[in-house]
Design a protein around this nucleic acid. Structure first.
Length: 282
DNA sequence: AACAGCTTCAACCGCAGGCAT
DNA sequence: GATGCCTGCGGTTGAAGCTGT
């Protein structure tokens, strides 16, 4: 809405990632790691800005990501950490292996925040709302407005949604449901028409609509034992991934974003640069 | 079945900080 | 110390999916 684009270059694609783009990005990062995110899209053959690639990787394609809703323990930890750290989502995410700051931020805003409000707890201060109102006789105008907006919502939700959410909420894919891909998966084939349904959203494979049924049946057929594996990996199969040595790529899965500690990305390319002023590889 | 309103979450944006020169 | 580049962070947006009428 009137914002300046982060990439002023013409021809930079935005919006949802396609399966093909995911494949290119993962394939490139598998073999090269990343030197400078700015040049990753160029070298990977993507019409994206580096920022977009980094975001896609850290929030969705990283193999050490957990998928699905936060567990009760994780949720409690998030609340606890939020009370200590505030909206330092990256710091909070660093304490939850396999979770991204974006994921935690979203979960906070959509689930935990509402839950706390229904419990009469201010999600910002973590103090009881009533006590907050008594202790702060004249809150700032914006806070007053916020409380006025939130109180009716709290009352409105006290009815049925509480019970629903307390009972576990929407049944999305759980970590234990994540199965390794079949031996020879076809790109995006696990979800049937996922790639053809909408070019723009083909890569955004809905866990609830796809993996829990498709991958479960696939693993049942192949007899593969259930293990934790990120959803997008279905798109590419395991052979190349294992050959490329994911384990070496991600030695520390609990360190939050980044996580290329053990590799020397672009070992023979990066040192000394090699890019012109436009960031083109020379 | 069709529509409208609501919810969710992937992706975007601008900004700040770190680092190299 | 000044400048520029790159990365990471937190806030925000909007399309897709879901739910209710």
């Amino acid at each position: 809405m009137g914002r300046q684009p982060c990439c002023d270059k013409v021809g930079v694609k935005k919006g949802p990632w396609t399966a093909e783009e995911d494949q290119k990005l993962v394939g490139f990062l598998l073999t090269h790691g990343h030197c400078c995110w700015r040049v990753v899209p160029k070298l990977a053959g993507l019409l994206r800005c580096g920022k977009s690639c980094r975001l896609r990787w850290t929030n969705y394609l990283r193999p050490d990501l957990k998928r699905g809703l936060l567990s009760d323990d994780e949720e409690r930890l998030v609340i606890d950490l939020h009370a200590q750290l505030g909206n330092r989502w990256s710091k909070i995410a660093a304490r939850l292996p396999g979770r991204t700051d974006n994921e935690i931020k979203n979960h906070w805003n959509t689930h935990i925040r509402k839950k706390l409000l229904r419990m009469g707890i201010d999600p910002v201060t973590h103090l009881p709302l009533q006590q907050l109102q008594q202790d702060t006789p004249a809150p700032p105008p914006e806070q007053m407005q916020q409380q006025q907006e939130e109180q009716p919502q709290q009352q409105a939700l006290d009815g049925g949604e509480l019970m629903q959410e307390e009972g576990g909420g929407t049944p999305m894919i759980q970590p234990h449901e994540i199965m390794p891909p079949p031996a020879q998966p076809t790109a995006a084939s696990n979800c049937g028409s996922a790639s053809s349904a909408s070019a723009g959203s083909a890569s955004v494979v809905s866990p609830s609509s796809c993996s829990s049924s498709a991958s479960a049946s696939a693993s049942a057929a192949s007899g593969v034992e259930a293990t934790e594996w990120p959803e997008p990996m279905y798109l590419f199969g395991m052979d190349g991934i294992m050959d490329a040595g994911w384990g070496g790529l991600f030695p520390g899965t609990g360190t939050g974003t980044g996580g290329f500690g053990a590799i020397d990305p672009f070992d023979d390319q990066c040192p000394g640069g090699g890019f012109d002023q436009d960031g083109d590889w020379m």
